[in-house]
């Protein structure tokens, strides 16, 4: 782990995440992708196994995931929402993103920042269906000419059985 970033950089990171949370709450994924995501992004949400601590079976060779998207995958997901054909999101659901526990460190390469953050997402849709999802993110941000961008994001959700019928939203 690198050194803590400067106060100035830390507040830039916080501003970045608060803006991201606002765009997510507005479900404006297009602007998020355009303004905040680097073309090299890997957006990853792996799943884990509930095993005994001292288990001796080999780790799975091809562990599955809920997200393993690159930039064009994310773009196509967002396009799918933009078709205006998805009845699942019409009428639109409501979603609110909270971001907390933000830590930021100097990354391995010049201009890179490694961060940890936690989120709480409250999604409400279809009259009264509500789910609250708590999770964590490990990001690699890169500093470009127009500000910070996400180059890598690994999301962890501490649920083995996802208690929601879909996670088709950004987090």
């Amino acid at each position: 782990m690198g050194r803590d970033v400067s106060h100035e950089t830390y507040s830039e990171v916080c501003r970045f995440y608060y803006k991201e949370a606002r765009l997510f709450s507005e479900q404006d994924y297009r602007q998020w992708l355009d303004a905040m995501v680097d073309k090299s992004i890997v957006y990853f949400l792996p799943i884990f196994e509930e095993r005994y601590r001292r288990d001796r079976k080999a780790e799975p060779e091809f562990p599955p995931f809920i997200y393993n998207d690159d930039f064009s995958d994310l773009d196509q997901r967002i396009q799918q929402l933009e078709t205006d054909l998805a009845r699942r999101i019409d009428p639109a659901g409501r979603i609110r993103h909270l971001i907390t526990n933000i830590e930021a460190f100097e990354g391995e390469a010049e201009g890179e920042i490694s961060t940890y953050s936690n989120f709480l997402i409250c999604r409400n849709r279809r009259e009264r269906e509500q789910t609250i999802l708590v999770g964590g993110r490990e990001d690699r941000l890169i500093k470009g000419p127009d500000g910070l961008r996400i180059a890598y994001r690994m999301i962890t959700i501490p649920q083995r059985v996802i208690l929601d019928s879909d996670l088709y939203y950004m987090m």
């Binding site: 929601d164 996670l167 088709y168």
Partner: peptide, 18 residues
């Protein structure tokens, strides 16, 4: 996984109907 896991581009629309 992209089509038919929990954030599936197909499965999400199916689940809503179910």
């Amino acid at each position: 996984m992209r089509g038919f896991a929990t954030a599936g581009t197909f499965e999400s629309d199916d689940a809503d109907n179910f």
